[in-house]
């Protein structure tokens, strides 16, 4: 499934942040999003995931194809690791959670309440959720936060495996994952302020 974005403009809190953004993400490819804080990486990922409308432009091939992982992992502390994963698996209509547990080395923690996990373990659980969605395009917002070096390697392996199966990934990150990836620098697409007198404007 190819994700194709053309001439996209997005806004955060009513203020345009990025404009004229175009890129294509074919199967088995990774695209790394780079840019200074506040440039709109999270807003872009949320827009692609369908959580907020774009100001203008087209997004093709995104609907029901994207598995989105935000800063928050959506983990319930009172449920065990298995229960958390099984819940998301049944929401997305898949059954197998063992692959995901093994891929992120969570098998030993499977029956531990998620509230007792360390920050890095929680993050691994959050990323394991991507595997149980069964969706081809992964959209990850700073996935390596609070992961140690081993876990980062683990994560990169999972991404490679996912690409091998024809999946693709869109990752906003600052660290080098050792993946053969294209990098999309967002700074050139920063929205320029519109002239004061535009039409339904009056406001801007």
């Amino acid at each position: 499934m190819t994700l194709k974005v053309s001439d996209l403009a997005i806004a955060r809190g009513g203020i345009p942040v990025l404009e004229g953004l175009s890129f294509t993400l074919p199967p088995s490819a990774v695209l790394i999003l780079r840019g200074p804080n506040g440039i709109g990486k999270t807003t872009l990922l949320r827009t692609l995931a369908g959580l907020q409308p774009a100001l203008s432009g087209q997004i093709a091939g995104a609907e029901d194809q994207i598995a989105y992982a935000s800063h928050a992992d959506g983990i319930k502390p009172t449920l065990t690791v298995t229960e958390n994963l099984r819940f998301w698996a049944s929401v997305f209509g898949t059954a197998d959670i063992n692959t995901a547990l093994q891929a992120f080395a969570l098998s030993d923690l499977a029956h531990r309440p998620a509230g007792q996990l360390s920050a890095g373990q929680k993050r691994r659980l959050g990323l394991a959720r991507m595997l149980v969605t069964g969706r081809p395009i992964w959209s990850l917002d700073e996935p390596t936060v609070s992961l140690d070096q081993n876990a980062v390697t683990l994560f990169a392996d999972v991404i490679r495996e996912h690409l091998g199966q024809g999946g693709s990934a869109l990752i906003a990150t600052h660290i080098d994952l050792g993946l053969d990836a294209k990098v999309l620098e967002l700074a050139p697409f920063k929205a320029k302020p519109k002239p004061i007198d535009d039409t339904d404007g009056g406001f801007l």
């Binding site: 995931a49 369908g50 029901d64 994207i66 935000s70 800063h71 992992d73 959506g74 998301w88 929401v91």
Partner: peptide
């Protein structure tokens, strides 16, 4: 609660 821990975002992108 679901809003704070991000579950709502994930549920909104889920096929429900």
């Amino acid at each position: 609660l679901d809003w704070e821990d991000g579950s709502l975002d994930l549920l909104a992108t889920a096929p429900l």
